[in-house]
Design a protein around this nucleic acid. Structure first.
Lengths: 349, 349
DNA sequence: TGTCGTCGTTGAATCGGTTCACAGGCAGAA
DNA sequence: TTCTGCCTGTGAACCGATTCAACGACGACA
């Protein structure tokens, strides 16, 4: 590699600016800006000259400068728990669709369930001056989000109901969903059920646990006995494998397993199989999210379906409404989930 | 200042600026900036005062202004073909990891195989002044990317070898991968093989087709007869379902099916099953990408594995090197894929 | 006591757009 | 002919940060 002496090499021959265009076209600065933003205020002749100059210099306006002066904001940030999870990518699709319709654009980031990464992106997006953010919080402490909102940045909680009045949220009733899943297992005569759950810093984990407890208690069971909870650090296939390994190592495994999401269930099923256990004969399994491949697995997975794409769409709508003119008041929207019974729970006919 | 009636409501009480901080702390503008960027040049007393003011006003520097003036660029854009495809999310993970290590951040976008969307993001990212972009092109025309590169924006092709000397690229040998897949089917005595492929505007589709043709010819077969090609518009499960429907409607279906990627294979298998065909007995199936759930499907999927995460990591490295000081020359990196044989092809023992 | 260097701080210039009050030209009305 | 109003086009002010030449204070040294 050849290093140039002394200075860093300049990156290309400096981007053309609006005044370069003005000079090339023989008009003033403001006229070029008018061509760009209010073409009807410029005569066709001048407009043509300016456009030619723009083409010739391959001029691209500097977004920073524009945003600095005009405050034009068309960027929205989204911080999701795990971008590798089909559930969240589907949500992202919904968001992107709606934003594109409104001529806005999305900056997408994955916190990987790490509050520190989340904080980093929160700050980055704020510095970037986004219109607002859609966040699936990785921590229970919503104070940073509340403060953001007070500072005038639109915030919508995603897949998480807001405990505070001041934040909009779009979510699915996770307590009900988990309760449905566990009731299903109870109806198949399982009396001790393992639960592979994530850290309690994640709202979904708290809610789904609550749903499970509610279902067990409603059936007259003592959760302390009927629920064998295993906490894993990440809500993906690796987590599921680790969870099953731990479960089996502890001996006297229950006859059924409820997993906090489908990816976890995927890993869990893989681990169960590699230990020679049959699904659902030796262990019934239920997941959560109903990701697109759930029905196609070796043993099709019983799971809780959510209106995934819609979740994203509604969240985007809410943000645009809340941040646009009129400043709609915070709104809390909750969808109901639906149980999809397949072979993995042994409940399919 | 009092807001005039009739205007749009102002978004919050205006973000605090550096001069607000300066005033609050009783120091000058430049000093605040020094506290932010070169803390050692400021006396501890002053620094403390300024930090207190920052805290008090919850000041967050305006990224646009900073970037405008300083040209500090730490943002990288990535435009992937389909963010819902686990292959690409894994690549994104690799990219993000490396960028985070270098204290850079990623703006992620999905072109959904649509050249127009791609162009839109290309422009958006350029306006935003990104350091560079990682792109999986949705069209064969690389001219826009070349021009971008000439203008000083770093460009690295992802999962696509560069035909031009001037662009860096990181890819996997798709011709070889597809050839391996087809050779495998040939070795199992299949003589007519269906191929569900995507549009020829996508390089991967062209290359994988070429690999298939190469393998067929090497076996002394005439591709026109031995290959039953079906072109679908999107490389996902829906595409796979549509492809199989079309294939079966045409009658005299081949005994084997090669799919351009695993998502397509997923949809194809779903459709085959719903038509009452057994896999691999009635139809052997091979996919491409070896996504994480391939081994866990009802019939585990034979597929071509690629060093996915590494792909992203190396691409990010290349970009950082090419855009950083030193301006490394364009580099072309190609990995070799690997065939993973499972039950869906009937070739597993 | 005068000079010099160092340290900490200042404030003006600057980045590249947008906006707006205003100027010049021209047509139609009085 | 003069006035009015419309249509184009102009250029200075401004957004909020960074940078740098310059400056005052202070201690060291001759």
């Amino acid at each position: 590699m050849v290093t140039t002496a002394g200075r860093a090499p300049q990156r290309g021959p400096r981007r053309a600016s609006i005044s370069d265009v003005a000079q090339e076209a023989g008009v003033s600065l403001g006229t070029v800006s008018n061509v760009l933003n209010r073409p009807d205020r410029v005569s066709p002749t001048t407009r043509a000259k300016v456009l030619a100059a723009i083409e010739h210099l391959s001029f691209v306006p500097n977004g920073s400068a524009r945003q600095l002066r005009a405050g034009t904001i068309t960027t929205v940030g989204a911080i999701l728990l795990d971008i590798a999870n089909p559930f969240f990518t589907e949500v992202a699709r919904g968001i992107e669709d709606r934003l594109a319709q409104a001529d806005h654009t999305l900056m997408l980031a994955s916190s990987d369930e790490d509050p520190e990464r989340e904080a980093r992106y929160l700050r980055l997006f704020e510095e970037h001056g986004v219109l607002g953010m859609l966040v699936t919080p990785a921590s229970t402490d919503l104070e940073p989000l509340l403060e953001l909102s007070r500072r005038g940045v639109g915030v919508v909680l995603l897949d998480r109901t807001s405990p505070a009045e001041e934040l909009s949220s779009v979510a699915v009733d996770d307590v009900a969903g988990a309760a449905m899943a566990v009731e299903h297992l109870l109806s198949l005569s399982h009396r001790r059920i393992a639960f592979i759950n994530g850290p309690q810093s994640i709202a979904q984990c708290v809610d789904r646990r609550a749903g499970m407890v509610r279902a067990l208690e409603a059936a007259g069971l003592d959760p302390d006995e009927a629920m064998v909870e295993i906490t894993v650090s990440s809500l993906n296939a690796e987590g599921g494998e680790a969870g099953v390994t731990e479960l089996l190592a502890a001996g006297t495994a229950p006859s059924a397993l409820f997993c906090v999401n489908d990816l976890t269930a995927l890993g869990a099923m893989r681990a169960l199989r590699s230990h020679g256990l049959a699904i659902p004969e030796d262990m019934a399994v239920v997941g959560y999210d109903d990701v697109n491949f759930a029905s196609m697995l070796m043993t099709p997975l019983t799971s809780v379906r959510q209106p995934t794409r819609q979740l994203g769409e509604v969240a985007a709508d809410l943000l645009l409404k809340a941040a646009g003119p009129g400043m709609a008041a915070p709104q809390r929207i909750e969808f109901q989930p639906e149980l999809v019974v397949r072979a993995s729970s042994g409940g399919a006919r």
